[in-house]
Design a protein around this nucleic acid. Structure first.
Length: 269
DNA sequence: CTTGTCACCTGAGCGC
DNA sequence: TGCGCTCAGGTGACAA
């Protein structure tokens, strides 16, 4: 599900609802997601004030004085803040009950997400992450240098979180369409000029998607329950056999690295 | 080191 | 209605 725009949308939605609020208790409705949820959170975070919320790649970082609660939404996760007395939904797995009568609930049907904790703020899962795509250090020189001699396809390259974080299957497809690059091209053979186009397209598309509240396919919703509206802006993703918005061609779907890739054979080369 | 594949899990949608 | 199949916003752990 959630790529960078969806996680950023979640972060922005949560911020006014949980920052400066106090945790009454932590409730584990199951003891694991992708990994075991630390049991000590019940005692560690009880009565603690939420100091801040941040995002690193697709990770949400909820800051406490005693450390950082790290949440990943996996493929199907979403977070809502509801009245604590509201009935649990199916697949609500983790809950921060606040002292103001509200609860932050993590719902994740497929359970590929994670709830972790770091005392110091750093974590092995965050240590080797690449640059943020919306920061200025993500530019054509960065991608050009890192891609030399790489034989993998350009789509896998920009989806590699050790290179750049937050670009998932939807936005990789959309970005490559926007700048006219064939997703099957080898990353190492792409010119600096094309990398400039690509970085600009990634930045533009992610920014527009955040503005639209993200993309909703099935599971994702914003913190208030409303869907993301970027779905209607998608040019190729999920549009196999439909007409290309830029030419008379048909959108193709191929499989790359076990994932569907949508693109236009005549617009992308 | 790099690249590609598998595994984790539930649910929606489709053809029969 | 039901069954079996395919597909789905991610990514760590492996094998090659």
């Amino acid at each position: 599900m959630p790529e960078l725009p969806e996680v950023e949308t979640t972060k922005r939605g949560l911020e006014p609802l949980i920052v400066s609020k106090i945790v009454n208790r932590v409730i584990l409705h199951r003891d694991n997601l992708r990994w075991e949820i630390p049991k000590h959170l019940k005692t560690t975070l009880a009565n603690q004030i939420i100091v801040d919320i941040n995002r690193r790649g697709k990770y949400l970082l909820i800051q406490f004085k005693v450390g950082t609660l790290i949440i990943h939404l996996g493929m199907s996760g979403s977070i809502k803040v509801v009245d604590s007395i509201e009935a649990l939904k199916k697949h609500d797995h983790f809950e921060l009950e606040l002292t103001n009568g509200k609860s932050m609930r993590l719902n994740d049907p497929r359970r590929f997400g994670a709830v972790l904790f770091s005392e110091g703020g750093s974590h092995v899962l965050l240590d080797s992450l690449g640059v943020e795509p919306l920061e200025s250090d993500f530019d054509e020189s960065y991608l050009y240098v890192r891609s030399r001699k790489k034989t993998q396809n350009i789509k896998a390259f920009i989806m590699d979180s050790k290179i750049v974080v937050g670009v998932g299957n939807i936005y990789a497809c959309e970005s490559l369409f926007a700048c006219g690059i064939d997703p099957e091209r080898k990353a190492g053979g792409i010119s600096k000029a094309h990398y400039q186009l690509l970085t600009q397209c990634i930045k533009t598309i992610l920014t527009q998607a955040i503005k639209a509240g993200g993309t909703t396919l099935q599971d994702f919703s914003q913190v208030d329950g409303s869907p993301g509206y970027f779905t209607q802006t998608l040019n190729v993703y999920g549009r196999e056999a439909e007409k290309c918005s830029a030419c008379n061609g048909k959108i193709s779907r191929i499989i790359q690295n076990q994932r569907s890739t949508f693109y236009c054979k005549s617009c992308q080369s």
